[in-house]
Amino acid sequence: MSTFGFFCDTSACSGCKTCQVACKDKNNLEPGIRFRRVYEVAGANWNKTEEGAWEHDIVAYNLSIGCNHCEDPACVKACPTKAMHAESDGMILVDSKICIGCRYCEWACPYGSPQYNEQKGIMQKCDFCRDYILEGKQPACVASCPMRALEFGQIGQLIEKHGDNRTIYPMPDPITKPALFIRKHPGARFARKLNASIINREEVRNEK
């Protein structure tokens, strides 16, 4: 049972990715390894009007995701070595001494969180900046956000403050109970109808 969670205000996230790089700086991550990723969702119909102008019904918003430290984590279930494990406080961590680098957690995670470090041959991922939290600091991503759109906290407090919404289009059904609480961008309710999709794929994943 996870104790901590993130909050992401998708109505305020500009997509600047300062969180992504603050995280990379904290964790010394080479290009290609992103503990935090910012997904750009967009969809629209564009139509030319009779008077020669353009009409659109665009929906666009960003979603910043690190690791959701799920309460029912698919990665932990999948890991053959128990390197991917839940701490007693619910944080999902990788024990790099045990990991065999089979990348099965990468497949199992619905949110693309586990990242493969090719140099080390092991999986790595967001650890909530555990050392910072123990020092009483905020995780690097949260403290970096120029729009103050990210928060970190105890799950109960986050739910009390922001409600218990753990998904936004096109995130999958929260079957893993992600500890990510989301304020929905107002446009999100039209996203499915517009067939919106994540349009910055090569920025968030390593294309094979």
Binding site: K17, T18, D25, S144
Partner: peptide, 10 residues
């Protein structure tokens, strides 16, 4: 708060 450019300065 610095943006992505400042944070990537290393």
């Amino acid at each position: 708060r610095a943006c992505i450019r400042g944070r990537s300065y290393r």
